[in-house]
Amino acid sequence: MDTASLTGLIKAIVTIVLIYYIVKFLMKMLAPVLVQQMVKKAGQTMHERQQEFYNAQNNQRQQQQQEPAKRPEQKPKVGEYIDFEEID
């Protein structure tokens, strides 16, 4: 059975601390670039959606201008309405 030694514990703690500081350093270097890319992508997406919305509105306006105003269709009279009363 292996027992834990003091040197093994110290090596593990030093490794964890080194990994922590390396990750912290890399995040300081990469975070601004990643945030800038995310903002740029969000701006492009919003611009594309805005263009789609304006294009849809323009198409709808053009269709309304091209179609003449239609009269509402009248439903043909099928028959007469009869009100039945219940007799006790």
Rank of each mutant, 00 (worst) to 15 (best):
K41W: 05
R61C: 02
I13S: 08
E67Y: 05
V23G: 05
I87Q: 10
R71S: 12
E67Q: 15
Y54R: 11
A42R: 04
I22T: 12
N59L: 12
V39M: 07
P76R: 13
Y21K: 03
Q60C: 09
H47Q: 14
Y20W: 10
E80Y: 04
V78G: 02
D2L: 11
A31S: 11
F25V: 01
A42F: 01
V23I: 14
Q51G: 02
E85G: 05
E48F: 00
Q66D: 04
K70T: 07
S5N: 10
Y81K: 13
R49S: 03
E48N: 07
Y21A: 04
N58G: 02
I13Q: 10
Q66C: 01
P76S: 11
V14P: 00
E52N: 07
P72M: 10
G8W: 01
E52W: 00
A56G: 04
T7C: 03
F53A: 09
E85C: 01
M38R: 05
D83Y: 05
P68N: 04
N58Y: 08
T15F: 08
M46F: 06
K24I: 02
V35T: 09
M29K: 14
E85R: 11
K28H: 08
M38H: 08
N58W: 02
V14D: 11
P72S: 13
M38G: 03
Q65G: 04
Y20L: 12
Q36F: 11
Q64V: 06
N58I: 08
Q64R: 08
M29W: 10
S5T: 15
V14A: 14
A42D: 05
K24E: 10
E67S: 13
V14K: 11
Q50D: 09
V39N: 04
Q44A: 02
V17S: 13
Q37V: 02
F25I: 03
R61P: 00
N55A: 08
E85V: 09
I22E: 03
Q66R: 11
V39L: 09
E67W: 01
G79C: 04
R49Y: 01
D83V: 15
L26K: 06
A42M: 07
I13N: 04
L26Q: 06
F53Q: 07
F53I: 05
M46G: 03
H47G: 03
L9R: 14
Q65L: 15
R49I: 00
P32D: 02
H47C: 01
I19S: 11
V17H: 04
A31T: 11
A12T: 11
I13T: 14
V39K: 05
L6Y: 06
Q37N: 15
V17D: 02
K28M: 08
I19L: 15
E48A: 03
K70G: 01
L26C: 09
K70A: 07
P76K: 12
A42E: 10
Q65R: 13
E73A: 13
L30C: 06
Y54S: 06
N58H: 10
L30Q: 09
E73Y: 09
E80F: 01
K75C: 02
M27C: 07
D2E: 13
L9A: 15
R61E: 12
M29E: 08
V14H: 06
V33Q: 06
T15W: 05
Q64M: 12
